[in-house]
């Protein structure tokens, strides 16, 4: 493990009874990197991610996140990461401003900080006019962008995004990835799972999981050369069929 490492996993394993969901995976993610975590449904992505975010205790192996051991310092990890879930992470019956206030609050931000950061947030994604609207009243694309901005409101060291762009139109997805790039440029590590292979091309490095193991890992360009194909889509299909 080197100095600029923000996620480190070695032989990380999770068993549920006889079933091994994640089987001795090892990888490192550098600070400020955009790391794509790919894999078919049921390949073990979500389980791996839940272990790294402190939601699930690993069965064996070792892992540190932001320098904290996942076995012993889960609570510390939670303070230093942001998390956006695959399903909707905002409360529909609360307004935009109330959601921001709530999430800012549970991450221990001060009232003034919340105020100032929400202004920046409104400016960045152009949502100031809707600050008092209920979440249920604003379009899905905006909700997803807002959910992302809220997950980095407390300026975490790493943000975990679990299929953040599901069901979103291509234009909004493009805007979403602009936000991800900005975040990474600020030095925040982005750990993202996705099903969209065009999005995989945007990542600095990707890993592809099948049956609980990491079958391939590297820069998208390298992987395409290695498998002798033109797109990440083809890489993915080749690996998934093995």
């Amino acid at each position: 493990m080197t100095a600029g490492t923000s996620i480190y996993a070695k032989n990380l394993t999770k068993k549920f009874g006889n079933f091994t969901a994640v089987n001795t995976i090892s990888f490192e993610v550098k600070k400020g990197e955009i790391f794509g975590f790919l894999g078919a449904n049921g390949a073990g992505k979500t389980t791996a991610m839940r272990m790294l975010t402190g939601l699930l205790k690993p069965t064996s192996g070792e892992a540190t996140v932001c320098g904290y051991n996942v076995f012993t310092h889960g609570e510390q990890i939670k303070k230093h990461i942001g998390y956006m879930s695959q399903r909707f992470s905002l409360y529909e019956d609360l307004t935009v401003a109330e959601n921001i206030e709530f999430y800012g609050g549970i991450y221990g931000l001060r009232r003034n900080d919340i105020k100032q950061r929400s202004h920046e947030l409104y400016d960045r994604i152009d949502l100031g006019h809707a600050r008092n609207s209920l979440i249920s009243a604003i379009p899905l694309g905006w909700r997803q962008k807002l959910a992302f901005m809220v997950s980095i409101l407390h300026q975490p060291e790493i943000v975990f995004l679990d299929e953040p762009t599901g069901g979103v139109d291509p234009i909004t997805r493009r805007q979403f990835w602009d936000l991800i790039y900005e975040t990474a440029n600020k030095g925040i590590t982005v750990f993202v799972t996705t099903h969209y292979m065009d999005e995989a091309e945007y990542c600095g490095r990707v890993s592809i999981m099948t049956n609980g193991i990491i079958a391939a890992m590297g820069h998208p360009q390298e992987l395409k050369q290695q498998y002798g194909v033109a797109t990440m889509n083809e890489v993915f299909i080749k690996i998934a069929r093995q």
Binding site: G54, L55, K78, Y83, S85, F88, L90
Partner: peptide, 14 residues
């Protein structure tokens, strides 16, 4: 059901 529980659990709230 809404999936917000997961976000709460990943937060520093006990």
């Amino acid at each position: 059901e809404m999936g917000t529980m997961e976000v709460l659990l990943a937060s520093p709230l006990k």
